[in-house]
Design a protein around this nucleic acid. Sequence first.
RNA 1: GCCCCCGUAGCUCAGGGGAUAGAGCAUCGGUUUCCUAAACCGAGGGUCGCAGGUUCGAAUCCUGCCGGGGGUACCA
Length: 579
Amino acid sequence: MNLLHLIQAKFRTALTGLVPDPEPYVAMIKAAQDAKHGDYQANCAMALAKALGKKPREIAEDLVNRLQLCDLLEKPEIAGPGFINLRLQSSWLAKTVQSIANDDRLGVEKAQAVKTYVIDYSSPNVAKPLHVGHLRSTIIGDALTRLLRFLGHTVVTDNHLGDWGTQFGILLYGYKNLRNADAYKKDPVRELTRIYLEVRRLIGVEDEDEAVNPIAEACRAETAKLHKGDPENVAIWQDFMPPCLEEIHAIYRKLGVPPFDHEHGESFYNPLLPGVVDSLLEKKVAEPGDGGAIIIRFSENNVALVRKRDGAFTYTTSDLATIQYRLKHFKPQAMLYVVDFRQSQHFANLFEAARRWGVSNVELTHISFGSVLGPDKRPIKTREGGAVELGSLIDEAIQQGRQVVDANSPELPDAERAEVAEAIGIGAVKYADLCQNRTSDYIFSFDKMMAMEGNTGTYMQYAYVRNRGIFRKAAIDPLTLRKNPPAVALDTPYERALALQLLKLEESLLSAVADYQPSAVTAYLWDLAKTYSGFFQNCPVIKAESDAVKQSRLLLCDLTARVLQQCLELLGIKTVERM
RNA sequence: GCCCCCGUAGCUCAGGGGAUAGAGCAUCGGUUUCCUAAACCGAGGGUCGCAGGUUCGAAUCCUGCCGGGGGUACCA
C-alpha cells in the first residue's frame, strides 16, 4: 500500500498528452510539509508554466480537471502560485486500514524487481576486541539487511574479517617476543590485546623521515612470512583464530545481531591475490611503482598499492579479489560496504579500479557513516584514553535499562525486569545511532539515549507498552480482532491522522532503502508515536462512546502496535509488553 | 599542497529546488475522577558560516572565501 504511488499514478495519467515525459513532474508530488496544506501536494504546475507557456494556476486547474479522483481523493485545492493540495478521502482511509488489519505484511508490498545484495558490514579486526567504532557498521548493516529482506530482496551478509593484515604481523611478533604464556592460556583474547597494544607502543609513531623502525620492520616481515605460508606463523595464526572469533560472536549475540551468512575474512582471499595482481598488470590497470611495489594510479598524487615492496598484498588487492569472488558466487546486483567515512577515498579508488578491471553491471556503494564522539566532541575514548570496548558498552547499556525498569515498575518479576532492561538498554543504543543521519558524527550519551522524552528508543518502547496495556486491561485478544476486522470510523482528527500515518509505512521503508538511511524509519516511527500519543490522549478506547467506536479504535491500536513492533524489529530492536 | 565531508534556534540535530525554515532537549505556562502523566497542549527563541551567481522560486544547485573534521604509496 503506497499512497504516494497511487496519487502519482493519477497524475501520470493526467499529465500524459500534456507533456512528452510526465516523470519529472510526477516526481514533484510529495507528502505535504504542513498538514494545513492537505496530505500530499503537487508542485509541478509552476515548473510546467514555462514548458507550456501558460500561467501556473491555469495549468493547476487544468490538471485538477483531468484527474480521475475516484474515491481516493477529495477535490484538490489550488493555492499560492499554483500548488495543488491533495487530501485523501477519509472513507477511503478507513476502508483501507480495515483491509490491512489482518495482513502479515501490514500492507507493505514486496518489491517487484527483486535484487540480490551483498552487504559487507561490521568487519572487525580479529586481533582486537570489538570496540565502539564497530557499533555503527554492525547495527546499520543489520538494519539495512532486515529492511531489504522485508521488502523481498535477497541479501547475502558477509563479515569481511580483518584476519590477515599487518595487525597479525604485530601479533605474531608480540606472540613470539612478549607473550605471557599463562595469561595467554587463561584468556587468549585479553593477552593478545595486551600484546598488540604493547607492540604498538614500542613502535611508537612512525615518521617517514626517520630511519626505519626495526620493530615495525620485524612486524612487516612476520606479515610477509604469514602471507607466504610460513608453517610456524600459519600454525600460530590458526591457534589465534577460534577464541578471537568466539569473542566476536558472543558480542553479536549480546547485541542481537544474527549470524552472518559468510565470514570470509581477508585470509580467505589470500590464495587469489597473486592472480589478481597478475590480472591487473595484464589489463594495464596496475603498474610498477617505487622500489618494486605495484600500484594503481588514479591521478598525479592519488595512488593505491596492490603489492608492497616486500611482496605483501594490501587491502586494495584483497578487496578486489573479494569483488571478483562475490560476483562469481553470489551474482549480486549490488555490493554494499558499511564502513566509516574515513575510508571514502579507498572505496572511490577501489570502485574505480574494479571498473577499469572490467567489473560492470553491478552497483558498488560505500555506505559511509560518521564517528561516535565523546562529550569532548573527539572520537570516544575511555578515561584511560583507550578504545571503548563494545562488550562493556553493551553491559553498561543493559544496566542503564535496568535502572529505568526498576524505577518505574519495581513490581515486575525479576526475570521480566532483566529482559526489559536488555530490550530497553540495547534498544536505546541502537535507536540513538540509527536515528542520526548516518553521515553525521554523533555524541554518545547514555543520558540522552535513555531519556524518557523525545525521539528515543525508550519513548518508542513506551508508546508500544501503553498500547498493549489497553488490550491487557480490556482482556481482548488482538488475534480475534484481526480475524474479523470491525469497520473503521475516522471521525476525529486524531483517528484520521493515525490512519494516514499507518498507511505511510511502505513509503518510509522504501525511502530508507533508496538512500540506505535507516533514519527514515526512525523519522517515521517518531511521527507515528507522536500521532499515536495524540490519539491515546484524546480518544478513549475502553471507555469509547459506543461499541462501534471502541472496536474501530481497537483496530487502530492493534495496527499501530504491530507497525511499531515491525519497524523496531527492522532496526534490530526488541519490544516488551510491559516496562 | 591536493582531495572528501561538515557549518541551520542556547544545546543536539532534521530538512538537500517550492508556501511564514522544523523537531527534541533546555526555559516559561497549562492539562490527571480517564487505557502506564515515562504522556499531552501552548509560548518564546533563527542574518540557515560569509559573498557572489543560476532559477518564477535557493537553507537546498554552482563559484570563491572563512571556520571545523578527515584522508593523502607500503595500517585497514
